[in-house]
């Protein structure tokens, strides 16, 4: 019984309750870096780390937080984890840190994190919240990685920085420019809604 609940918590955000497709949450901070697969990977790892651990922490504290300062405490905890990500990146992956610039800090305002805490972590046990946070992060991660895959491949003919398409390929510059992000995300949402979600409705 308990096991199936964990499984359900884990699988839901990956599929029919995906934060990006269904709730259209939290694309702000990461969409901007999806023109490169590598940058996206680091960003989504940061988001997963923050979502999972802040859900866990706040779930631990959930019976002690005075409701009036709930938001402040949540922000504080989220910001702490984001600062940890920032410091670690700066110390160990300085080049990545330089490229991501302010976007690491913007993980704080990623609506998924606050959303999962409010909707799930404050009502559930720590371990379950950790699973939920991790799964939401994963559900978010694969969508953004897919977008980055398309954008980098079509935009520069490379993947993870390596040239994969030959010289016959003409780069679609629009893909790595800002409008490309909007189009690819919209098309992804379209495909998912037309296929997977339709089946579920029927």
């Amino acid at each position: 019984m308990a096991k199936s609940k964990v499984r359900k918590t884990f699988l839901e955000p990956l599929g029919k309750n995906n934060p990006v497709f269904v709730q259209i949450l939290g694309i702000c901070s990461t969409l901007a870096v999806t023109n490169k697969l590598q940058n996206t990977m680091v960003m989504v790892l940061g988001v997963m780390f923050t979502t999972a651990l802040s859900s866990w922490t706040l779930s631990l504290l959930r019976n002690h937080i005075p409701s009036r300062i709930r938001m402040m405490v949540e922000t504080m905890v989220i910001a702490t984890f984001v600062i940890i990500v920032d410091i670690v990146l700066k110390a160990f992956y300085p080049e990545m840190w330089k490229q991501l610039g302010p976007y690491v800090g913007l993980i704080i305002t990623n609506c998924i994190i606050m959303g999962r805490i409010e909707a799930f972590a404050l009502q559930n046990k720590p371990m379950l919240s950790l699973v939920d946070g991790l799964a939401s992060g994963l559900g978010y991660a694969y969508v953004l990685l897919a977008i980055a895959f398309v954008r980098e491949l079509l935009g520069t003919g490379t993947l993870w920085g390596y040239q994969v398409l030959g010289s016959w390929w003409t780069n679609w510059s629009i893909m790595i420019m800002p409008p490309g992000g909007f189009f690819v995300l919209a098309i992804f949402i379209w495909i998912i809604r037309e296929t997977i979600m339709k089946e579920e409705k029927a």
Binding site: P66, I69, M72, V73, M76, V77, I84, I87
Partner: peptide, 16 residues
């Protein structure tokens, strides 16, 4: 609430 907030703040700042 004040004490709680203070404790959380101190803890967070110590870690970072």
């Amino acid at each position: 609430p004040l004490v709680f907030m203070f404790a959380v703040t101190v803890f967070c700042i110590l870690i970072t």
